[in-house]
Every structure is written in structure tokens, then in C-alpha cells.
Computed example of a mutant assay.
Amino acid sequence: MEPVVILSRLEQEYLLRAIEAGVRVASLHQLFLWTQGQLQALLPHAVLACMQFAPGGALLGIDCLHGTVLAPAALAALGGRRDGLALRIARHCMGSGRLPALFDGGDREEEGAQVLEGFRAELGALGFDSVLAHGTGQTAAGASVFVLFGLPMRPSARHAYFLELLVPHLHLALARLPPHGGSAAAPARSLSARETEIVGWLREGKSNDEMGQILGISGLTVKNHLQRIYRALGVSNRAHALARCMELRLLEG
């Protein structure tokens, strides 16, 4: 049986204020102010990595929010879109089905405390001796994962519970942000029925060859369709195309 976590009156007040402020987040700037204000009061941390994933697992966006200056090399190592530490921690936790997960540099036996043990050396090299991660898990619209680095206290199941209560609000705030590098303006042209179909399979994480087999066309033809889709949407890759279509509600219905 999981232990019952009873919030103090002050913790309840911090939680309520954090939730109320999160409802109004609609830009990256507002997200930064929220996480550096009300969220810090409940869960103080040095860096918060926010990640969005498509239903097929592709990374849609990652933002590392921090109130202190980070060296460019450290920020790249932490928040890189290809193999950054935050991304690898998120994928490890999702792949193993272990969320929440925490790490404090010790040898604790607490539930979730050993999930991130394999990242000990990298965390130490970046100057972090504590991590707390949680996320939504896979949903029909994808997933989001939030990783807090550099907590001043030893993260415990109590802190994981605080983050669990806030994850839905963090997720919704992240979903309201404009896509990375995109805008809410209409595309250069409407997508054709075939292009919309391809974007639908793109959302399912299918490769070009897999989409070609499903649609009865070659993988090269699928690639040509994708290039035209990118131009129409004003994006440069599959993840941004999917995020743009979600923003424009082209995949609804």
C-alpha cells in the first residue's frame, strides 16, 4: 500500500497558488515566470526540462527553464534535442514505465530512487546531485515529461507526489504554447487529402516505407509528399510538421 501524503496548510496554499497561476500560462515567457515563481515555492530546483512527445514517441519540443546562468556547453548537454541528458532520462523513464523517478546521489531503496542510477556520472559532471522526474505517460495526443534538476533537498516520495499533482497543469500549460519555431498563422495552402492522410500516419510514428506499404506507394513518393507538406506548413522536419498540424487542428475529426 502506498503511503498517504498529507499536505500541510502551507503546502496546500503553495499548491493552490501554483495551479491558479498555471491556468493563465499561454506563452513560454509566462511558463518561465510560473515555474520560477509559484512552482519554485513548492518544489525548488535549479533547472526544469519540459518535453513534449508525439503519440509515436517523436520529440516535439524541449525547453530547459532555469533562473541561473548555465554555460552553453552544459545547456547543450542537458537540453539537446538529439541526445541531451534530459531527453534520455525522459525516454528511459517512459520506456521502463517508471514514473515518477528520483535520484539524490545516495543509495536509497525508496521506490523510484534507483531508476536513474545509470545517469549518476553524467549528472555529477554537470553539477547535479538530485533529480525528480514525472510525466503524463502515453495519451492519445502524445505525452509530456518534466525533469527537475538540482533540488536543494533530498527528493522523496513526498516531493514526487507534489509533482504528480502538478503534472496535469504543467502538461496543459505546455500544450497551450505555440510550437517551436512556428506560429498560429494559416498554412501557405490547404493540405490535400493524401497529404492529410500521410500526416495522420506520421502521428502514428510510421516510417516512410511503412506509410508507403499502407498507402500502396513507394517510400520515395512518401518522402516527396512530406517535402511538399513541410513547404506548405513552413516547417523543416517531421516533428515540427506534426506539431504544426496539431496547432492548426488539422488532425481533428
Rank of each mutant, 00 (worst) to 15 (best):
I217D: 05
G95P: 05
V4T: 14
F128L: 05
H29A: 15
T221N: 11
A74H: 09
L151M: 13
S130V: 06
G212F: 01
Y14T: 02
L233D: 03
M51G: 01
H45S: 07
L123D: 11
T139P: 07
L65T: 04
A185P: 03
L39N: 01
L42F: 10
Q12M: 13
G118R: 01
A90P: 05
P178G: 07
G118N: 11
Q213C: 09
R82V: 14
E164S: 13
L165Q: 14
E122D: 15
E20Y: 06
E164T: 11
L15M: 14
S144D: 11
G37Q: 04
R194Q: 14
D104P: 01
G56A: 07
Q52T: 06
E110F: 04
G253D: 15
R88Y: 10
V69S: 14
L177V: 06
L163N: 02
A160V: 04
Q52R: 12
G105D: 13
G205S: 08
A157I: 10
E252M: 06
A193W: 10
P179H: 02
A73P: 04
Q12A: 12
Q38I: 01
L48P: 00
G61H: 02
M211G: 03
A141Y: 06
F119W: 07
A90V: 05
Q138W: 14
A77D: 13
Q30N: 11
P72M: 06
F128Y: 13
H171R: 03
T68G: 10
H169V: 08
K223T: 11
R158T: 14
L148D: 03
E195V: 00
D104A: 07
R194K: 11
E252Q: 13
E195Y: 02
A185Y: 08
H180I: 14
P155D: 03
G150N: 08
N224S: 15
G80Y: 01
R82W: 09
S190P: 08
A160K: 01
L75R: 02
T221D: 12
Y161H: 12
L78G: 01
V25R: 02
H225L: 05
G22K: 00
R154S: 13
W201P: 01
F32M: 08
V47I: 09
G112W: 02
L202C: 10
L250H: 02
L42C: 08
L172P: 00
S144W: 01
A239D: 06
V222Y: 08
L123R: 00
R17D: 14
I89A: 03
A86S: 15
L31Y: 11
Q227F: 11
L16G: 03
L251D: 14
K206S: 15
A133Q: 01
A71F: 10
A188H: 12
A41F: 04
S207F: 05
L177G: 05
D107N: 15
G124P: 10
E117W: 10
E109Y: 06
L163P: 02
H45D: 09
P155V: 03
Y161N: 09
F32G: 05
L31C: 10
A185K: 09
L65G: 03
A71S: 15
L7T: 00
I229A: 01
A141P: 00
L132W: 00
M1W: 09
G137P: 04
L15A: 10
P168Y: 08
L39M: 11
V25Q: 05
L170R: 00
M246A: 12
L251S: 09
F103M: 05
G253P: 09
P152L: 10
